[in-house]
Design a protein around this nucleic acid. Sequence first.
DNA 1: ATACGTTGCTGATACGAAACAGCAAGGAGC
DNA 2: GCTCCTTGCTGTTTCGTATCAGCAACGTAT
Lengths: 348, 348
Amino acid sequence: MPIKHRRQAPTQSDVARLAGVSQATVSAVVNGRAEGHRIPADTERRVREAVRELGYVANPAARSLKSKRNRLIGVHTFESVFPISSRDFYHEFLIGVEEQAVAEGHDLVLFTSTEDPDGKRQLYRDGINRLNVADGSVLLGVTHKPSDLARLAAEGYPFVHVGRRDVPGAEIAWVGADYRSGTEALVASLAGLGHRRVAYLGTSHRMEAQIDREDGYLAGCASMGIPPMPVFMKVQDLTPEWFDVTLAGGVTAFLAGAEAQADRIAELARARGLAVPSDVSVAVLVGTVGGPEVGRSWSALGIPRNDMGRAAVRLLVEMLTEPDIARDDQVLLPCTQPDHSTIAEAAR
Amino acid sequence: MPIKHRRQAPTQSDVARLAGVSQATVSAVVNGRAEGHRIPADTERRVREAVRELGYVANPAARSLKSKRNRLIGVHTFESVFPISSRDFYHEFLIGVEEQAVAEGHDLVLFTSTEDPDGKRQLYRDGINRLNVADGSVLLGVTHKPSDLARLAAEGYPFVHVGRRDVPGAEIAWVGADYRSGTEALVASLAGLGHRRVAYLGTSHRMEAQIDREDGYLAGCASMGIPPMPVFMKVQDLTPEWFDVTLAGGVTAFLAGAEAQADRIAELARARGLAVPSDVSVAVLVGTVGGPEVGRSWSALGIPRNDMGRAAVRLLVEMLTEPDIARDDQVLLPCTQPDHSTIAEAAR
DNA sequence: ATACGTTGCTGATACGAAACAGCAAGGAGC
DNA sequence: GCTCCTTGCTGTTTCGTATCAGCAACGTAT
């Protein structure tokens, strides 16, 4: 095999020598600051000619060493990146991140080297923040160490979290989905379809997102004048007896916090000879891929994943380019309302 | 919103001050040259402690300005990265790339900024090779500008192409699948199952991979003493009449260069009341997801995608760390032989 | 006592681009 | 003849890291 030798690229000094000017002049010309540096048109022409003749291109390393910007945006997921297929939760976020990075002229650095033995990724390993190689980072997923986020914020490292995340003692930037308004609007829309009793199936996780959905449900019920009926039961406790009692109470629609609960409702309804959605309406609050039967997917509140990814990058780049201006660094994006796949008018 | 001040990332000088040594000593320690610089274990420990305490990470710009190494590996695909879902062709390659990058302690830089208006990605834009921020790159996919590869090689930029790619006038490094041996072995295995006439359905593309498969087919036929029967026809020209003539000629097995051809054979066989694989065996030479009927996928030559991704990174890192040693920089990895889903013993 | 070797560092410099201060030459105004 | 301004640059420093030459202190050999 041939021994490859990396050709030494021409520098501004090479150009300067050829054009008979100083390196500083070349820098001014190639950066379009000829005006500000009072370089006459003739000198500029000579420099540009030399640039062309030598095929000069700026060394990105030197440029970013001076400007303190690498045009590199880190992407840290708390799971492995590539194995995430399109049906996975984070995939669509990543698409948005990539698209916006392209639009902003930045490249993405995938943080893989912080992989720990469990396959989880942590921000700090041996106390070292590898994220520093990027100008700033977008964080995806749920960390099992929220304190790392606080530490990162305290260090002043610029990052944006995708998904609302409240960390005690630190105000971190995030881009989240407005589950509260989305759920509230969904309740209103169900009420508009004639449903007077809408049950809410909560989950045991009490994370930000779940709390928002619950708040939205309660607000929706309040504004439509229907009684809130939140249920916090494990899927296996949703028995036929419970179902009968619930229906007897006048419930005609169910809001499921997780897909498993919706599946269970479908099962219970089928056992009672009831059809979805003509007899009972069911909506899922987190976007999924399943449904009550083949060819029919759950009506689900849509998370604007792509937009969230894009917004996160946009916010991050703004934070990087104008660190000192006041800015709303916590962004809520509206959810899209579900289609009417498993939602229908209330049976009379 | 609070005004955030980006704390300057700590430098080697900061670490040096804390550890009570010189910047040069810090450099030696963090680069693992403690031995060569005769740094005693105790001093090294102190430095490492300071590194941890400050969260020091080398500035990639400064590092590459000086030494041309960032521990950053570029990944350039000629299509968008994240939208590629797991069933897509490149996904498994990327997994391999990521896994090996983790293993080698490198991070991945996704090159997105070279996106041109058509959505194709090109290596050069405005004559600037952005790949330079990474130490070297893995290239995936097929470029519409092979000349860029030659230019990249001529510049001495270290890169490894995934998939065999012969560029006139340049010897580029690649990691490919050994379609030739794989196809040859497949023919031999079919012969072993009693097939005395194996038809080869070629494609009109005459790329490296297709040529290799064809060569392997011919070699397999030759070594097994069966007559080669290559067919280069469009799918729509594979008529029932052609099928009848082919069967009458004693053909009992088909090798399809593309899945569409296999599908067509299945259709023709069904029309004649023949079953796959009990009456005719069919194998596909490029890995796909379909099959002759639901629940049965085509027997397909397996491309070791994960291995190829890993091998590409391994080769690249070797090229980077030891640029001057002789090395085989064109690697062929064996294909896996198909299962017996649509291959069976020849009908007598 | 002198020469020499080893240990454990440090100081200086280079990499390429950008920013800034400043200086020489020439002309205008008094 | 002197000051002051403008034009057209140049010189120098800076960014953070890596490398190399070298130096002080100490030990050992003669």
